[in-house]
Design a protein around this nucleic acid. Sequence first.
DNA 1: CTGAAAGCGCTTACAG
DNA 2: CTGAAAGCGCTTACAG
Lengths: 339, 339
Amino acid sequence: MPKSNKTPTINDVARLAGVSKKTVSRVINRSALLSEDTRTKVEEVIAKLGYVPNPQARALALRRNFLLGLLHDNPNAQTVLKVQEGVLDAIRDTEFALVVRPVDRHSPTLLEDIRRFLELQRLYGVLILPPISENDALAELCLEMGCGYVRLGSAMLDDEEHIVASNDREMVQEAVKYLIDLGHRRIALIEGPEGFRSALERREGFLAAMEAHGLPVPPEARAQGTYRFESGLEAASRLLDAPERPTAIFASNDEMAAGAFHAARQRDLKIPEDLSIIGFDDSPVAAHIWPPLTTVGWPVREMGRAAALKLIAPGEEAAQAFRFPARLVQRQSVGPPKG
Amino acid sequence: MPKSNKTPTINDVARLAGVSKKTVSRVINRSALLSEDTRTKVEEVIAKLGYVPNPQARALALRRNFLLGLLHDNPNAQTVLKVQEGVLDAIRDTEFALVVRPVDRHSPTLLEDIRRFLELQRLYGVLILPPISENDALAELCLEMGCGYVRLGSAMLDDEEHIVASNDREMVQEAVKYLIDLGHRRIALIEGPEGFRSALERREGFLAAMEAHGLPVPPEARAQGTYRFESGLEAASRLLDAPERPTAIFASNDEMAAGAFHAARQRDLKIPEDLSIIGFDDSPVAAHIWPPLTTVGWPVREMGRAAALKLIAPGEEAAQAFRFPARLVQRQSVGPPKG
DNA sequence: CTGAAAGCGCTTACAG
DNA sequence: CTGAAAGCGCTTACAG
């Protein structure tokens, strides 16, 4: 009998099953070289005892922890949290746990810090959120450290096994086409910050739609923001004070769209009568501002789940997915132009 | 010489310092029984080698991991993320890492799930966010499992070493007094959901302020919500359609306040001219709706940091703090009543 | 297909 | 104040 007051160990299982520890270890690790009989026998004992391998011991022996890491530079609280939920969906009822690691992408010691972190924690793998997912040096660091990684991004930044991507460019193109189909001609763009791949993808989607319909995009119809609310307010202010006021604005994220709402309000412009606005992200603020914002939503939670599966169960079918289409969420901030 | 291509272990340190492993272990663990000479000598070797104790090995030997857990039932994405940042502030440059564990407080297997989680991961300690921080059975489970815990809450739910609390009741009382001082008399309350301690605290603060000024709170001046946006919209709709319309509303959180904004808008009520609104949380939506919402903000990040310190460095001064005052953030959703 | 021995890198009584 | 031995619960070559 195993000592009854303690959680059972591999030794208890081995003794009761009449095999060696090594054999038990083989069934835990699903080794192929095992007779069906032995496997069944051991599995029965495992079930009877309620044995669960100790992750700390495995970590020490394997020099690898059963921890998934989430590396991010807080693009947006809702996004980070939804990814966390997705990862949890994937690791539920496994021995894996999720470790979070916010970082500062402007820190000069970013890579060193992460290297130390990976070295110390010996993570099984990491998920990297945008915008730091666009940092190729970081991906290489993971490779070098023998740490699995999957990047979340707005485009195919890496091989299929290392990326889970939305189709920002395509969706923005579609969203802008929707405005054009409603009759809008003077459509302005609030871009995201330089150096963000998502900002580039969304801008290119915007420009492609305009070009496809032969619509000009003069410099005064473009303004750059930082993805923050205030920058959206400023950018929209400039756009709306131009001599030829746009009848619609595409803002590269919801926060900036919310800022654009304020700019419109300050000028007594009614949304959508005087000005249509489309955002991107489908964050909670989109539904909570007035009028509710039409926006592009991407399946953040599903992407988090798929990314985690790529790391822990690369064989499974769900882990093969790498493309996750966004979709247009129609609410009430868009209408046909006046007149 | 230690093998130069590997990270140094305790053996390398012991050999170079000319002491036993045990002695090195003593300086790592800051044992008191050590001669100054020995300690200095060992510390020098540690510094020279850049030695860092392997957390996996320590975890196995100590039967305790160097992981802090964050248990939450997503009260609000921003809050969860700010707490995470606070915890990171506390564990930066330590061997600790942060593991997150979203749970479903309505799950019938909640406690069992958490028990298995604690058993498996052998966490050093957990931080528990509201509302599940109000679950006494959960706190007891932690105690029983030998897992440290600290609760975040809106009131003193536990001993000083196990709680980090804001002063919701007091602050709401102050916020309502502010409305009264401006001349409001008919002030309505949108309560949070039953069973939430924060909802109770905020309600009591509201009622105390009204009572202190001899103002009645008829049933039609109170409505209950769920802390979600939609419930705020519904609750405010009822309040605003009452025969004696209130001139001000205190909503027990910002999301419901945002819902109240929509209700006002639907009735062509101008904020703050026709209706003043105060929320609670100072979440991002507060600054992004129009007009910007006056609200009560609490120091979430600081509380997260303090809670983590209580777990990992209970001796330190910063770890002694347990009361964290909220404050009124004045923006533009409040004004004197008309006429 | 299975096992005995050694090892992962620490800490814990127990001596002295 | 310091050390030798055993142990935490697994896995890894190496045999057979």
